[in-house]
Amino acid sequence: MAIEKGHRFAVAFDEAFPQGLVMVGEVSPDNEFQSREDKAAGRPVRQRVDESTGKRQWKFLATDLGETRAKRASFEVTLLADVQPVPSASEVMPGMRPVELEGLTAEPKVAGQGEYKYQSYVFRATGFKAADSAAAGKSSRSGSGSSAGAADGSKAA
């Protein structure tokens, strides 16, 4: 096989999300699973580290404005950075803000189960674009096209 499993393809934000992306809630650390035994022993919670870049992982819930299927419109996006990325856009509604991502990559994967499997993507980014470039990107978008998302931290095709 020419392309290894787990390969991350660089993708332009406007290609992946032509109608934009809304962050729901806040950015939080992507922590490793902690068992009951670990919690009972008082072991500290550890934040995940990306194997490819060595950067700490952060996550947030996103909604793709171009997705028409409700089950696939919202998904988690992973941010790879040493410090917690902060979106520069202000909230348009309580807990919701439009965002643009920089350093965006897509990793193909199969989602669903049984006969209902479909192609999806895991999205990772290095951070948020500045507010002035985000506003410029929105005015230049045509608004055509469609993207699909999945609630399992991926995005369907």
Rank of each mutant, 00 (worst) to 15 (best):
A151E: 08
S35P: 12
T63V: 15
R46F: 05
E67H: 05
E107Y: 00
G149L: 02
P98Q: 03
K71N: 13
V45I: 12
I3S: 03
F9S: 09
A89H: 03
E76A: 09
P94A: 07
K155E: 01
F123C: 03
T68S: 12
G95Y: 05
S90P: 03
G145S: 07
D132K: 06
V27C: 08
A156M: 07
D64Q: 08
V122R: 09
M93L: 14
V24D: 08
F9I: 12
S144A: 07
Y121F: 14
S52C: 01
A62G: 11
P108W: 01
A148S: 15
G20D: 03
A2W: 06
R36S: 12
P98N: 05
D64W: 00
S147A: 15
K155T: 13
E15S: 15
Q34T: 14
E100K: 04
F9R: 06
E115Y: 07
V27P: 12
V49T: 15
V49M: 11
S35T: 15
N31D: 14
P87L: 02
N31P: 00
K109R: 10
S146H: 05
A70T: 13
V83G: 04
S154Q: 09
E67T: 15
S154K: 03
A150P: 00
K109E: 07
R8E: 15
P85L: 02
V122G: 06
D64I: 10
V110G: 01
A62S: 14
P85K: 05
G145K: 08
V83R: 06
Q119R: 09
E4P: 00
Q84C: 13
Q113I: 04
R69K: 11
H7R: 10
Y116E: 07
V86C: 06
A150I: 02
E4I: 12
T53V: 07
K5L: 14
S146D: 07
D30F: 09
F128R: 03
G20I: 03
K59L: 14
Q47R: 14
E102H: 08
G143I: 06
P87F: 01
V122S: 09
R72Q: 13
G112F: 00
V92I: 15
V27I: 15
G127T: 05
A106P: 02
A41P: 11
S90K: 11
E102C: 05
S146E: 13
L21F: 08
S139R: 05
E4Q: 14
D82S: 14
G112M: 01
K129G: 02
G20W: 01
S142D: 10
L21S: 06
A89P: 01
A106K: 01
G143M: 00
Q47D: 10
S139L: 04
V110L: 09
L101P: 08
G137F: 00
A10R: 10
D64M: 09
K117S: 02
S140M: 00
M93H: 10
G66Y: 02
R69H: 14
K138G: 00
V77D: 08
A89K: 04
V92T: 14
F60S: 07
R97G: 09
M93F: 15
S52V: 10
G153P: 04
S52K: 11
T126G: 15
D30I: 01
L80N: 10
M23V: 08
D14T: 04
A62F: 05
S133K: 02
Y118M: 07
A40T: 09
R56Q: 13
A89M: 13
V110Q: 06
A156T: 15
L61Y: 09
